[in-house]
């Protein structure tokens, strides 16, 4: 039930209109960061205030909302945002990727392929991919307007010169439709290929930095690389110890102080549905009860 003390989806209508206009301009110019007047939310910056505002502006009463934090449905950030919208918008919630119409995510893209009609809302800490190379907003804005992205390639080259390969493992920069260089939020680079040509609409909200940007469905997104150092969406060379999946992104969990460890799917819904379907990993029997 909606808490009647709040307007639908918490934000006032004037604020939602402002955010909605920013989202539409973001959709019209894929990858460009649209400034918006981010509001104070009843949670601190860094807890997904940008994503929450975008979600609030998009929600309709019929929506089914899923919230994930690093792939997990049951961590503090995911649980609290899910409860926030249950209370203020009265929407149904789910942990199943396929059932959700709006998915707010912190730093992962679900393993299960998204479908048309779904909206994926990313929480973004630093939306400007050039920020750590050029701290001045006036300059980065000029660099985007002139398509001057040489600095980013120098950064990737210096990675190769120093480490022998591109060492950026998350928030790996991408080029959208051959125009804007974009920060895909701190998703692991393993997820980068899923950004491109997705049937779902992808929206990005950065609350503290007051930026919204978007990838419409079927937008071409290319991870930056070099001919002799092609992009490599790497992951831990293991199978999931609970469900045995070989193709999912894994978290490493230390299990004792003697060096024992296990690898498990970061996407909890993906892992659980595989275990329910009978897949068992190396340690599956002992850990299966937690589903």
């Amino acid at each position: 039930m909606t808490d009647q003390s709040y307007n639908f989806a918490y934000l006032d209508e004037q604020t939602k209109r402002m955010i909605r206009r920013a989202i539409l301009k973001g959709v019209a110019v894929p990858g460009y960061q649209v400034p918006f007047a981010s509001r104070e939310m009843p949670m601190p910056y860094g807890w997904g205030t940008g994503g929450v505002q975008v979600t609030a502006a998009c929600l309709v009463p019929e929506d089914v909302l899923k919230v994930i934090d690093q792939g997990a449905d049951d961590t503090t950030n995911a649980v609290s945002i899910r409860k926030f919208f249950q209370r203020t918008a009265g929407v149904a919630t789910t942990e199943a990727t396929a059932e959700a119409t709006v998915i707010q995510t912190r730093h992962r893209i679900p393993e299960q392929a998204l479908t048309a009609g779904q909206i994926l809302v990313y929480q973004v800490p630093i939306p400007e991919p050039l920020r750590f190379l050029e701290p001045r907003e006036t300059e980065t804005r000029k660099m985007h307007s002139l398509e001057e992205y040489g600095l980013m390639h120098v950064k990737l080259y210096e990675d190769i010169a120093r480490h022998g390969s591109i060492a950026t493992a998350y928030a790996y920069p991408v080029r959208v439709e051959g125009r804007y260089v974009m920060d895909p939020s701190p998703i692991p680079k393993f997820d980068n290929p899923k950004l491109s040509d997705s049937p779902a609409l992808q929206l990005f909200g950065a609350g503290r930095e007051q930026r919204i940007y978007a990838l419409p469905p079927f937008t071409r997104v290319v991870s930056l690389d070099f001919d002799d150092h092609p992009f490599d969406p790497s992951k831990a060379p293991h199978d999931c110890d609970l469900c045995g999946a070989a193709e999912s992104y894994l978290d490493e969990v230390i299990t004792d102080d003697a060096g024992s460890r296990m690898f498990v799917c970061s996407d909890t819904d993906f892992c659980r549905s595989r275990r329910e379907a009978g897949h068992v990993g190396r340690l599956g029997e002992t850990a299966g009860g937690g589903a």
Binding site: F8, A9, E13, I23, L24, A57, C58, V60
Partner: peptide, 19 residues
């Protein structure tokens, strides 16, 4: 009922502009 009607209208406009 502005909050819900505008929400549904926006989703329709968003759908149209993003596709």
């Amino acid at each position: 009922d502005a909050p819900t009607q505008s929400a549904r209208a926006f989703r329709a406009i968003l759908d149209a502009l993003s596709r």
